[in-house]
């Protein structure tokens, strides 16, 4: 995270994630009896995408903003790759942490290329290298530099703007990214597409990402792990999506998961309905095509695998959760049509 190796950041290989540790993190605002965030301990492995999910006002955004010190903690410590974040100069620190917000926050008076180039320019990259990086990032998020680089944010659609927001956060190839409900302001269809693209991107980049949302479906879809937060940012459960779905730690998590509805749906459908990829390795845990999704999930959790074999094909957890969502959508349509 030092400036000396800033030149190395634009390698095509890219900087992968670094570990984030929060220890006893607390934020107390003057004049308020209760702390907004109380004594949070969290260890995020390098390269993992961790979703903070919880109701509004639970302190999830406050917790996230303490990591790049937009909010200064009252006590506790934060380490990224073992380095004490609170000992760094905040502006320097933030130049090495990608940041995406719900309002996107592209600067309307700057072109797309200028918006993406801000952080590399702050880091004093040579002009040519900045231009190359901008082109590379536009390609990465699926936009054509010759068409979009010289346009202004207001000339783009909401979905395109959000892609630029992500590209800007990735500009200096930071090991860590913070994302505050980044897809929250887009329509449902665009949101699904942005989520899919983002997952594909993250598989390639392996950044360490803290992703804040109040949408549990989004958390399931995107998270390597999910931290379900309750008031004062207390961690009710911190686990993989599969484990949280199968074994909610308590009533609170269960209610947040949507409790029975989702679990029932898991029991209503069979894995045979999912089209798996052929060529399952022999050592993969398997279930029969007639097994319910619930049973399949149990096997995944029990064997600590995010994939299982069904009749020789591979079914992943992502496909399983997609099937639940699809079933959910069908149910809703039928309910609407019935009225």
């Amino acid at each position: 995270m030092s400036d000396d190796n800033a030149d190395d950041h634009a390698d095509s290989s890219g900087t992968t994630g670094e570990r984030i540790e929060l220890v006893g993190l607390t934020k107390r605002y003057p004049g308020q009896a209760e702390p907004a965030v109380e004594n949070v301990d969290l260890d995020v492995a390098a390269g993992e995408l961790v979703v903070f999910v919880g109701p509004s006002g639970c302190g999830k955004t406050t917790t996230m903003k303490m990591i790049n010190r937009l909010i200064e903690p009252t006590s506790g410590s934060i380490r990224i790759d073992g380095r004490d974040v609170l000992a760094m100069q905040p502006d320097q620190l933030r130049r090495h942490i990608g940041y995406v917000i719900q309002q996107i926050g592209l600067f309307p008076h700057m072109t797309i290329a200028q918006n993406i180039g801000i952080v590399p320019n702050l880091l004093k990259w040579p002009k040519k290298k900045v231009a190359e990086r901008v082109d590379h990032l536009l390609h990465l998020v699926g936009l054509d530099p010759t068409v979009h680089a010289r346009r202004y944010p207001r000339q783009l659609s909401g979905g395109q703007q959000q892609r630029i927001g992500v590209a800007r956060a990735l500009a200096a190839d930071p090991p860590v990214m913070l994302m505050d409900e980044p897809f929250g302001a887009t329509d449902p269809i665009t949101r699904l597409r942005l989520q899919d693209e983002f997952l594909r991107l993250q598989r390639e980049l392996r950044k360490t990402i803290i992703f804040v949302t109040h949408d549990f479906e989004e958390a399931i879809k995107l998270g390597d792990r999910i931290a379900v937060l309750r008031e004062r940012s207390h961690i009710a459960q911190y686990d993989t999506p599969a484990n949280i779905l199968a074994r909610p730690a308590d009533e609170y998590v269960a209610s947040f998961v949507g409790g029975d509805a989702t679990l029932k749906r898991l029991a209503l459908h069979t894995v045979g309905e999912i089209d798996g990829e052929p060529g399952a390795p022999a050592d993969l845990p398997g279930v029969a095509p007639t097994a319910t999704l619930r049973e399949a999930l149990d096997v995944m959790v029990a064997r600590g695998s995010d994939r299982i074999s069904v009749d020789g094909t591979v079914v992943t957890f992502a496909q399983l959760s997609a099937a639940v969502r699809a079933a959910d959508a069908v149910d809703r349509q039928q309910t609407t049509a019935g009225h």
Binding site: N68, L70, D91, Q92, L93, R94, R95, H96, Y99, I101, Q103, I104, G105, L106, F107, P108, H109, I118, V119, L122, R168, A169, L178
Partner: peptide, 27 residues
């Protein structure tokens, strides 16, 4: 000026003076 502009500017590592000169005043 939209507060999100200031937050985005600070969040990506611009100084307070930098945000004023390059974001707030131009807007």
């Amino acid at each position: 000026v939209d507060a999100a502009m200031v937050e985005a500017g600070r969040g990506i590592g611009m100084s307070a003076a930098g945000v004023m000169l390059r974001i707030q005043l131009p807007l």
